[in-house]
Write a protein that binds this DNA or RNA. Structure first.
Lengths: 404, 404
DNA sequence: ATTTATTCGTTCTGTTACCGAACTAAATAT
DNA sequence: ATATTTAGTTCGGTAACAGAACGAATAAAT
């Protein structure tokens, strides 16, 4: 890998890597046809990639007239990437190879003292996962950390993260970079979940997707044109502030958001308590609704109606091809079918609403997708605009089976 | 302009054109510094561009030590583009040179019989404007047509356009292409207005903008990452269907949209009639409000409150850097200050809301911007991904002064 | 007035990337 | 055994680009 190759070699190298990653195992002659580059150029480029360890031969073509061809694929063990899901109660780390296959995973309770000790824990977990002797792997090149807050790109701090302590004064990416000596990217976890669902669903850049997470709060991650939509002040997807549900003018709605006041955990518990005088957990309320409890059903109807309006609002503004429901509450079947029913009532066309396919692993998958994307672009395109590489995802069931 | 130059020459040529278009008049030595390309390469490329007629010399540098340099700029008369605003009552055509300066403009009443006769009228107007002997100009290369409906990219037809007749069975772009022998692009007029405001405001790709048009209807054009956001079914920006204002479940709201039922022309007239028993035109209602008529003020308050909620919804989903109000109703000052007041009440952060700077010419400006963008990309980048060229806009006051 | 410094622009030479044409190599079809 | 097909390599040539050097044209210093 030269220090700074010419534009033309960067573009053609990217095209070759894209063809091998997408269609591998594949012969050089086929790559030549796919990319439009000459056979001799392909042989030159693939030869370089092979001697550098990025691709490997895996056999020969069979079943056709003419000479057998040597076929190449991306060498999975050429490098590894890490994805971290930093939550209020747990930290998950997944280590993946160059093709997105999960090599190792690790879960620990979150260090509650927060701050530097929390950062130390993350660094230690990533290092331990990468160095696991039970799992020989390529060199770790990059890690993506998902956080339940808003990363401040100027300072590196994580803001508005009530679930984790002490990261609002620490440059998380910078510190981890020093500790681990690799590239670090920090991103909001709902945004990563949106990317994860988009990637694992093989969606193209034209298939915009919105991931709506409903749990202790409500928020959305938005993928437009294949990339995250963040907004002017990082507030894209803050649908808790849509002006309906509770009164948007009320003081409380300026703090928490009108919609969030009527759709998240506390709202469900409060709504049920108002109807029954009893205080129950959200799972108990869902259970009661399944058992025919009228108040519980009413509660879920009210919540679903507001989420349906949020969905209609998202569609009226964005018209995405899919809305994915996730979060501890959002993807529950009892809620999903109510949301669909109410959405059909308040929007004149059908809104495609599906539950998350990745469940609690969506953010990890999103982290893997952008880690691989950044790594490929860094290695083969060398940052060249117009030479971006789309890394195909691993099989969904294989990915999920690798998670505890 | 060779038929198919190499990638490297396309990228460097685009970089050179971008530098000259952005900073011209400029010397070759300065272009070399800006682009990082060697002086000899710059001389080669600029020499080609000059002999092909795309750039011209306009004098020499002055006021510095060392040799005088020859300075180059884009040759304005090298080509022209046309922008058409096809409305229900009027058709406007603007002819612009390669730098966006308006050379000629033409307005005619819309041919009410619609269909092929309407298409003929457009073709005739474009041809007449381009061939005006009072205005010698470069060869017309491309035209953009803004329509008050939804262009169907598969069939070329214009759908959902109640104001203009007979275009739902005609391939508008295809027919105009045959008639005029140039490239034709068709786009929704509100979308073009959004692009026009974005372009003339020198906004960068990171400055997302939403243009909200309120007139006989309400709708939005959305510019994200410097390009139009259309959505999966072309319904992005259909904010008339936001689920508040009127009851979104009502049958009428499925046809017209809950928000549109309470914010557009008919709604204002109907609201005022309900309060007073009198039927007045919208201008008369605005006049009455200015004269202290309580019912008129109440009417405007109600409308503004709903538009403010729409603005809050847009911000909760997209977080754009600016919302531009346009349309015959949307940009009125009486309404604007009310919208801002109500927006501040129902959204916890400040929403940047400004009136349209281009007024009724926004769609024409948007058409010019994408015509120039497409032309530059076609001529100099030859469609090469990564080599896109941002054409700087002409001065706003000059542009507007050129319009009748 | 002359010399020195600065900046612009051209010429010369060499490298990289790429490809058409031709040819060799390895398989199936006739 | 020969012809056809497909993969892969070799040879020679072009396009694009840049380092180095140098001539050209100016202002500033002597």
């Amino acid at each position: 890998m030269a220090t700074q190759t010419k534009i033309s070699r960067r573009m053609s190298q990217s095209a070759v890597v894209q063809a091998i990653a997408t269609y591998g195992p594949i012969s050089r002659a086929s790559v030549s046809k796919l990319t439009g580059l000459s056979k001799q150029t392909i042989s030159e480029i693939v030869g370089n990639l092979e001697s550098d360890g990025w691709v490997r031969t895996v056999g020969q073509t069979e079943g056709h007239v003419g000479r057998r061809a040597v076929v190449y694929e991306i060498a999975p063990d050429a490098a590894t990437v890490a994805s971290v899901d930093l939550g209020g109660t747990k930290i998950r780390v997944a280590l993946c190879d160059l093709t997105g296959r999960v090599l190792a995973e690790r879960v620990e309770p979150t260090e509650q003292s927060g701050g530097r000790q929390l950062v130390d824990q993350v660094a230690r977990m990533v290092r331990a996962t990468a160095d696991d002797p039970q799992c020989p792997s390529g060199e770790l090149k990059i890690a993506v950390v998902g956080v339940p807050g808003v990363p401040d790109s100027r300072t590196g701090a994580v803001l508005m993260a009530p679930n984790i302590a002490g990261l609002d004064q620490i440059d998380l990416a910078g510190t981890l970079n020093e500790r681990l000596g690799i590239d670090i990217l920090v991103e909001n976890d709902v945004n990563l979940a949106a990317l994860g669902e988009h990637w694992m669903d093989h969606r193209s850049d034209q298939d915009d997707l919105v991931f709506v997470s409903v749990g202790t709060g409500i928020g959305a991650g938005i993928v437009v044109g294949g990339i995250l939509l963040r907004g002017a002040s990082g507030a894209a997807g803050e649908i808790g502030f849509l002006p309906f549900g509770a009164d948007p003018i009320a003081k409380e709605s300026h703090k928490i958001g009108a919609l969030e006041r009527v759709t998240a955990t506390d709202a469900i518990i409060g709504e049920y308590r108002m109807l029954t005088g009893k205080t129950c957990s959200v799972p108990a309320i869902f259970e009661a609704a399944n058992n025919g409890d009228k108040a519980a059903e009413q509660t879920l109807d009210n919540v679903a109606c507001q989420i349906a309006r949020a969905s209609a609002s998202i569609v009226a503004v964005l018209d995405p091809s899919l809305i994915v429901m996730g979060g501890s509450i959002g993807a529950r079947d009892e809620l999903m079918h109510r949301i669909r029913r109410f959405a059909a009532q308040c929007y004149p066309r059908e809104i495609e609403i599906q539950p998350s396919k990745l469940g609690p692993h969506a953010a990890l998958a999103g982290g893997v997708s952008i880690a691989l994307s950044h790594l490929h672009i860094s290695l083969f395109a060398e940052g060249q605009k117009g030479a971006e590489i789309n890394v195909p995802p691993p099989a969904l069931d294989t990915f999920k089976a690798s998670m505890s």
